[in-house]
Design a protein around this nucleic acid. Sequence first.
DNA 1: TTCTGATGGTTACAAATGAAACGAGTTTGG
DNA 2: CCAAACTCGTTTCATTTGTAACCATCAGAA
Lengths: 162, 162
Amino acid sequence: MEPEILELESFLPYRLYRLADAVSREFSRIYKDSHGLTRPEWRTLSGLGQRGTMTATELGEQSAMHKTKVSRAVAELERRRWLTRTPDENDRRVEHLTLTKAGLAAYREMVPLAKAFEQALLAKLGADERAAIVKGVLSLEIALGTRQRLSPGECKTVAAKG
Amino acid sequence: MEPEILELESFLPYRLYRLADAVSREFSRIYKDSHGLTRPEWRTLSGLGQRGTMTATELGEQSAMHKTKVSRAVAELERRRWLTRTPDENDRRVEHLTLTKAGLAAYREMVPLAKAFEQALLAKLGADERAAIVKGVLSLEIALGTRQRLSPGECKTVAAKG
DNA sequence: TTCTGATGGTTACAAATGAAACGAGTTTGG
DNA sequence: CCAAACTCGTTTCATTTGTAACCATCAGAA
């Protein structure tokens, strides 16, 4: 019996990783070149900009980061005076994190760039291909249980699934 | 005008990265738990198992790894006596890498596990969802120019695209 | 030939990462 | 009340990674 070989270039885990890596590397220029942020720092900024105030634990859940990454990213953004910590009144272990004016300004500056990046990426695809990647990614998220929460636009897709 | 916010959970670069990370982490148990391989080492093993003999540069291209990763992975696999280096006769900078019997044995042991992993992953999806993720990933690879080479099964898909 | 620049691959150093231990605070159960 | 167990977040340490410098070799041009 002929020994099996694995074609790496067709292997989905590899392809997914390579794709995500390429996209992420490209996107990182937006926050790295302009402000010297790392990915954890960008995600922290983005999370707080989006939600307003969060604890470090919540940030970790929302942005899928290990707590040490959160801790270090928060420390760096605090050093830049882009966020402040407010002790929780009931539980002194907890700190509520909020962007400062400077942090919010940086966030608001980057949001349009991020959206434009995503649009440009999707614009390279045909309509059916866009639909395919969105549907495929969503279905894998659900299958793996890494789904976080449904965005308005996706509810229809999920509903249509049933 | 209301300031724009970015919904991280719906942002494609983030979702792709998180998904790939989850899949890759899960898959890494196959080569990490059983043989203590790192991802670069696994890719090196996989590349050589698939192609038989390659140079470090070729390995880097095939498996999308930086040359320092390749260099270190090759050094480790050589230390394990899983591969050997053969100097090129015409160009003394080049070494041809080949798996030893032990390396090949490890490769052949892991290939079915890898394939089973991929099958199990896809089995969690419906037929249309499987088609969607394959089509979506392929179209993004093409759009980004990270495509490496067409596997037999994909030729139809690409051809049908035109 | 000899100079220049490109290439294959390794190494050195700094930065990013993850696992585990940690201190401080809180909750639970006796 | 008190001790064990748990949680929040930080820090320590070892490993992994990327950038850049590096050595050796090769190819091309003067």
